[in-house]
Computed example of a mutant assay.
Amino acid sequence: MIYSIRGMTKIFGGRTVLDVDSLDIPKGKITALLGPNGAGKTTLLSILAFLSRPASGSLAYDSREVRFTESHMHPLRREVVLMNQHPIMFSQTVCKNMEFGLKLRKVGKEERRKIIRENLKLVGLDHFEQARAHKLSGGETQRIAIARALALSPRVILCDEPLASVDSQNQAIIVSLLRQINKERGITVIFTSHDAVWARNLAHETVYLDGGRPVDSVLENILSGNAARTEAGEVWFASGDGTRLPLPEGIEGQVRVSLDPSALKINHSSAPGQGDGLKGRVHQISREKNGIRIVVDAGALISVIMPEKEYKAMAPGIGDKVQVAIPPNAVKILNG
């Protein structure tokens, strides 16, 4: 195992944001940390990068116990690189940005240039050496950040939401790059995401965090909002992005819900007799072991797993208007 965590907590402002009883992350694999916003994913990455200290508990790195002192963590940081969700680039050339870490490690000029060219070529941006780094697109910035991380020859790369704010073309390139560096260089890759669809396709292992704690089952379609009773006496849930759905009796106030993708049903929006449900357009389609995953943009992105027979009969396409029916057994009420 590259990391082993036991009894770890992290507290901010008197609130426990991370509470991990036991977690092992394998060496040489790609591991996804999944969960909604505020689940503790970024907090955990910061600890794994030796940039933050937990309030309690222990961490072993490559079977060595980590002492959370500056003198002990400093050399470990040379083996682990953290890529932030929005990588910071100096207002200089790409070459100058990539040189910075190498200069700190006292790498000679000729060797620096060789390393920079080699890694820019790997990410497909070898002609960007003299480009102004702060003027790059979001996808190009992420790819330069990967090249900059690789230039330091890390054993572990930690990526915080690497596909956030990246166009679909660069998403595919970044996914391919993460696979490549893991396979060819043996680098352990750990990334966070709230999108279980592409995370499952990339990762060898997945860890789901909810409320700062690892949970056994992967909850999907997690929505936060308010439950209130209407004049008609029904209880309805409303999230900040406008998603609305009926809830069982007795639920009121701030609440989080999870919608089981295997229990949801997709219908054509024009189908007769279709009343309540989430209306939207098909955003993404992918094949999985247990069926066809349809992602519907209904204000929030909602995943639905369709049996292949149903999918072939309905044949929904990207951009089609559909309605997601939500039977009562699909709704799980989480802690508020």
Rank of each mutant, 00 (worst) to 15 (best):
D241E: 15
R229F: 00
L247G: 03
A227R: 11
G277T: 06
G277C: 08
W198Q: 14
A271P: 00
R185E: 06
E252S: 15
D216G: 14
A199K: 12
H204W: 02
L219W: 01
V207P: 04
E205I: 08
F191G: 06
N267E: 11
G233S: 06
N267C: 07
E231H: 05
I173P: 03
K279P: 02
T206D: 00
E231K: 12
G186M: 07
A228F: 15
A263N: 09
L223P: 09
L202S: 11
E249K: 14
A263R: 15
E184D: 14
G275Y: 08
A238R: 14
I190S: 06
G277W: 09
W236K: 14
R213I: 04
D167H: 02
A196C: 02
E252C: 12
D210E: 13
G233Y: 04
D216K: 14
G277Y: 10
I181E: 05
Q169I: 12
D210L: 15
G253L: 10
N170R: 10
G211E: 05
Q171T: 06
V257A: 00
I173H: 09
L278T: 09
H268Y: 11
A172D: 11
I173D: 10
S224C: 06
W198D: 14
L247Y: 04
P248Q: 08
N221D: 04
A172S: 10
L245I: 11
Q180T: 12
G225I: 04
V257R: 02
T206I: 08
L245E: 06
Q171C: 13
A232R: 14
K279T: 13
N182H: 13
S168C: 03
T243V: 15
G186C: 06
G212P: 09
E220Y: 01
G233F: 05
I181K: 04
R200V: 01
V207T: 01
T230S: 12
G211H: 07
P248M: 03
G250R: 08
S176E: 15
Q254K: 15
K265V: 14
S224N: 08
A232E: 13
Q171Y: 01
L177T: 11
K265I: 14
T230W: 00
R185P: 00
G273Q: 01
V197N: 08
L247K: 03
W198F: 14
L247A: 02
G186K: 08
E234A: 12
Q254D: 13
Q274I: 12
R200K: 13
G275S: 11
R229Y: 02
G273T: 05
Q254V: 10
N267T: 02
R179T: 09
A232F: 09
